[in-house]
Nucleic acid binder design. Structure first.
Length: 516
RNA sequence: GUCCCGUUCGUCUAGCCCGGCCUAGGACAUCACCCUUUCACGGUGGCGACAGGGGUUCGAAUCCCCUACGGGACGCCA
């Protein structure tokens, strides 16, 4: 076993890359990295009717987004290409013939209709459905006669009868299967298109694949493939058949309960790193007490044998938590960059990204620990861009809770005229935003330079406390109506960060409007 | 139906291979409290599991058997 470890992800482009496929790809990728080998991508597009360009693009995009970069494959080339099975037909034909010569494969003249009928009859009898091998037992004369009539038959693998195959599955362990459980599977269609098991064997060999990590549904295919490798006289790779991802109800993950396409999570505003991390955790764990880890950390510890043997349920709550955790740990510049498309889609003026970058960065700083996905951002910052604000019900109640509240607001607005608030968006804010870093925390004393053209959030708070005292109002009571007037809601980030970011014109107008 | 695999807190899991360190650890969720101008974040604490039954053993979550339940496969799909 001195050969370079080579692993592959081999999706068929018949739909968008879903969570389960992504996890399979991820484990193959991680194993390749952990073993110091190569990770390749091979496209199994032999089902012409169902393969689409859109699916292919989706898969490529999703893998790239997740950072699962392949060393060989579409767009990257490599010595063992082409990496699309539909472009390797001559190879399959040649090896098919070879197997016929060796007596390990035979032409089958049955039509799909005949096979379907056979299956239906077996089903009706309650028997196991299996090809009855009628073409395997044809006499040589009969075979030649049929060949004359049907020059292009399909090709079936002549399965060794009644043999026990023992495999050491890297995930499942030792398993024995009697070939009586299997039937003579079709290797090649009459039109020369290979079927899964055959194309897989030919390509895994041609591409020097050493380890195959794939879903448990392929376990019996693994047995068929091992037998095929054997018939070809080739060494088979090591297999690991891993359990499937289940939905909340314990059944196969379905679209009903969660988004299944990887790119849907991107579009909902999950950071790629968080998706990578969460998917990795579905059936594998970094350690007993650490759930959040980087790609490098994972690679350093990953071993195929450690993949869990029981199916795991997909828990969107934990996924959301993890997404928020990643966003919180990210640099502001990165948040700004990654959130940008979501802001624009959410109706935030795209121009602000350029004209008010510093201001926006401050806004995001205040929101960073308050969202779980980027797409929650627009709704939480929209009030900063509006001219005036409508109050929700809870906010309205806060205006009426204290009898004098409206009067305080009017007085506060008047008072604020004397205070150097930065201009409201889209006015120019300049130094106010570059020099002041939000959010202001009482744990980290504010160190804004003096001589700023505007009051900082800390200044504003000192000022407001003094103002409330002069008014004879408890600060806590004062602050709620102000928030309601400024933001239209009762929730949000620090009030004086809010006031600072909202700016002069809007603050005064909203205070006055709420005062009635 | 037949064959294969699995089963630790509600969920993801550590521990299991190499029995004792397990009064079973962590995380999400949940509850309480603290922090606090709200919401979050953060902190502290609580609730909460070895599917059931038999063995083996001085001792079993860990080894063996049975049962139950769950999943997968049985395509000219992959």
């Amino acid at each position: 076993m001195s050969q370079t470890p080579r692993l592959r992800f081999a999706p068929s482009p018949t739909g968008p890359l879903h969570i389960g496929g992504a996890r399979t790809a991820l484990y193959n990728w991680a194993a390749a990295r952990a073993l110091g080998g190569k990770f390749l991508l091979r496209i199994e597009d032999t089902d012409v009717a169902r393969s689409t360009k859109a699916s292919l693009d989706n898969i490529l995009e999703a893998l790239s987004w997740l950072g699962l970069h392949w060393d060989e494959g579409p767009g990257r080339g490599g010595e063992h290409g082409p990496y699309f099975q539909s472009e390797r037909l001559a190879l399959y034909a040649r090896h098919g013939e070879e197997l016929v010569r060796r007596g390990a494969a035979y032409p089958c003249f049955c039509t799909p209709e005949e096979v379907d009928a056979m299956r239906a009859a077996q089903e009706a009898r309650g028997a196991r459905t299996m090809y009855d091998r009628r073409c395997r037992n044809l006499s040589e004369a009969e075979r030649q006669a049929r060949l004359a009539r049907t020059p292009r038959p399909s090709l079936r693998f002549a399965l060794p009868l009644d043999r026990v195959v023992r495999v050491h599955d890297l995930c499942k362990g030792e398993v024995e299967v009697n070939t009586a459980e299997l039937d003579d599977w079709v290797m090649l269609r009459p039109d020369g298109m290979p079927l899964y098991n055959f194309a897989c064997v030919v390509d895994d060999h041609a591409m020097r694949i050493t380890h195959v990590v794939r879903g448990e549904e392929h376990f019996l295919n693994g047995i068929k493939q091992i037998l095929c490798f054997e018939a070809m006289g080739w060494p088979a790779p090591a297999y690991a058949h891993i359990p499937l991802i289940l939905g909340k109800d314990g059944r196969k993950l379905s679209k009903r309960e969660a988004a299944v396409a990887v790119l849907e999570y991107r579009d909902r505003g999950f950071p790629a790193d968080a998706v990578f991390n969460y998917i990795a955790l579905l059936g594998w764990s970094y350690s007993g007490d650490q759930d959040v880890f980087s790609r490098d950390e994972m690679v350093a510890r990953f071993r195929i044998a450690d993949i869990g043997k029981a199916g795991s349920k997909f828990d969107e709550e934990k996924f959301l938590w993890m997404s928020g955790d990643y966003i919180r740990r990210m640099s502001l510049e990165r948040v700004l960059e990654e959130a940008a498309p979501h802001l624009v889609r959410g109706g935030i003026p795209g121009g602000a990204l350029h004209s008010h970058r510093d201001w926006l960065r401050n806004v995001l700083a205040c929101l960073q620990e308050r969202v779980r996905v980027y797409s929650e951002l627009p709704d939480k910052m929209r009030f900063l861009f509006q001219d005036g604000i409508a109050l929700d019900e809870a906010a309205r109640r806060n205006l009426d809770k204290e009898p004098g509240a409206r009067a305080w607001l009017r007085a506060y607005a008047e008072h604020l005229r004397q205070v150097a608030l930065p201009p409201s968006y889209p006015g120019p804010r300049g130094a106010c935003d570059t020099a002041v870093r939000l959010p202001v925390s009482k744990y980290e004393p504010h160190a804004a330079p003096t001589g700023l053209p505007c009051a900082t959030p800390v200044d504003l708070e000192h000022d407001a406390r003094a103002f409330a005292e002069r008014l004879g109002v408890k600060f806590g009571a004062f602050v709620h109506p102000v928030r309601a007037a400024l933001t239209g809601t009762t929730a949000g980030f620090g009030l004086f960060d809010t006031l600072f970011l909202l700016g002069r014109e809007q603050a005064l107008a909203r205070l006055l409007a709420a005062a009635g």
